[in-house]
Design a protein around this nucleic acid. Structure first.
Lengths: 220, 220
DNA sequence: TAGATTGTTAATCGATTAACAATC
DNA sequence: TAGATTGTTAATCGATTAACAATC
């Protein structure tokens, strides 16, 4: 009976970290854990962990802590990982293929049914078992197969128009790898993976660390 | 003359967005912009934009706004994009290859010199011009070529030991695609791209949006 | 029961927004 | 000069941390 509603993005972005941590603990056959111990592993304060979890319900027990398996199950439910999703990839470049072949996603219930491209050399091929169709068939395919997720790995120039097609066909969410801010109606989810931004942030941090080091050396 | 020091991560993570936006404006031959106009494009408040930029210096002019080209140059400098970086990729799976072949990174000064793997079938190959070497040569190669960035696209089981090798060889930063929290000395930068987490967050948001919609329908 | 640890309220801290004097 | 818009200080908002009563 989750209390839900108005969970902040800061909390949501930590949920997968709890999920992974609890999975690891289970693998190590640890079945009980306190917020204090979790704090040691995750690097969040125990207080924050208790606050975060209590957004969704009281999963712990005073004097005991949390049952790892139970909490793991709850968080999987919260994340929506207990159901399967159908996805298609648009843009059969290296990145698109890498994602389609990434077996790990399927393990978590994200099934990539097909890929789409405009390149006639690719259309009709099977790439590791996943068929490549013509972009023109995108709309029909999504409708027919109740596809919920569209992955955009096209060049940035066509990303918005692909997004429009996906929305038009009734997609629920777009996993966007193109370096653009997509405009979609508010009932469509967009989750961005902006590799460029990640790289540039790393570049900034390298520079910052070097400046800091130079400053320290100077002080000596 | 940047005032730097103690810039919050929230600000840093917005810098690439300013950078991209300004690049787009230049392409559209717009040479002058106010924080108010930027606000309309980026979706940040004008106030936040001025605050953000003033962390690094006063780039604007009262009554005029910002010179797009000048500001773009400044932000590129701040991000450290005016110099070149040498990188290697460890783990020649689909993702590793996708990253090595992603020409866009090279355009911004990130040069991928070589890839490393333990698979004897891959070692010795050239993949689109990038040579694949044996993991054993990693340490020597990094030292000899002054490689600054190591990209980890290995399975998660070996990611930490690869990170250790990279650190040992004197790398400055790790771009980590493995779903683990790497432990490194504090003078090494780690920037994570956790695709799993991104996917799970999307899953959560889909569920949340569905619940919201169901609730709205109920109210009618 | 005594000890441990949660759930939750209150206090603190940091980031965002508003306001406005400075100035181009 | 008058209008526009910055840089910057002050006010607000939200997220994190601390504290502690409830309770297993």
């Amino acid at each position: 009976m989750p209390k839900n509603r108005n969970i902040s993005m800061a909390v949501i972005r930590r949920l997968p970290k709890y999920n992974r941590c609890l999975g690891d603990l289970l693998e190590r056959e640890i079945y009980r854990i306190s917020s204090k111990e979790l704090s040691g592993i995750l690097g969040f304060t125990a207080s924050q962990i208790r606050q975060d979890l209590n957004n969704f319900g009281g999963f712990g027990q005073q004097g005991y802590g949390y049952n790892v398996e139970e909490l793991h199950n709850e968080i999987q439910k919260i994340l929506g990982l207990t159901k399967d999703y159908k996805a298609v990839v648009v843009g059969v470049g290296n990145l698109g293929q890498a994602i389609a072949n990434h077996t790990n996603f399927e393990k978590h219930g994200f099934k990539i049914l097909a890929m789409f491209d405009i390149n006639p050399n690719l259309i009709g091929l099977q790439i590791r078992g996943t068929p490549v169709y013509d972009n023109k068939e995108l709309h029909g395919y999504i409708k027919e197969n109740d596809v919920e997720i569209g992955v955009i790995t096209t060049p940035k120039e066509v990303a918005q128009s692909v997004a429009d097609e996906l929305v038009e066909a009734g997609i629920k969410a777009i996993w966007n790898f193109a370096p653009v801010d997509l405009k979609v109606p508010e009932d469509v989810v967009v989750e961005d993976v902006h590799l460029n931004e990640s790289l540039f942030i790393m570049s900034y941090l390298i520079k910052e660390k070097e400046m800091l080091k130079a400053l320290e050396d100077q002080e000596k």
